[in-house]
Simulated assay, not measured.
Amino acid sequence: MNRIVLLLTLFFSLSCKAQTNIINIPERCNHLPLQTDNGSLYLKDITNIYAPYVGTWKWSSGNKEMTLVLLKQNKYHYNNNTDNYYQDRLVGYYIYKENGVVIADTSGDDLQSDFGISVYFGISCSSKVNTGVFIDVKKEKMISVGLEILSPTQMKFDGDIDQHSSYINGDKQRTLYSGSTFPLNMVFTKQ
Rank of each mutant, 00 (worst) to 15 (best):
L90Q: 03
T9H: 13
P26C: 04
K17I: 11
S40Q: 10
I25D: 01
Q87F: 10
N79A: 10
L32Y: 06
R28H: 10
Q19G: 02
L14C: 08
K72A: 03
T82D: 09
N38G: 01
Y85G: 01
I46N: 07
T36S: 10
I25Y: 06
E27L: 06
N63L: 09
H77D: 03
T20R: 08
K75E: 08
V5K: 15
Y53V: 04
R3G: 10
V69Q: 15
S15G: 03
T9P: 06
V91T: 12
S60V: 07
L68I: 07
L41D: 00
A18E: 14
P33I: 03
N79M: 09
A51D: 09
D83S: 12
G55F: 09
L41V: 06
Q73T: 08
N79G: 02
R28N: 06
L8V: 10
T56P: 01
D88W: 12
F11S: 09
N63T: 13
T82I: 10
L71H: 15
L32T: 00
W57L: 03
Q87E: 15
R89V: 06
L43H: 04
Y50T: 00
S61G: 13
W59H: 06
W59N: 07
T9K: 10
T36Y: 05
Q19A: 05
L7H: 15
Q87I: 12
T47P: 00
N84T: 04
I4Q: 14
S60W: 03
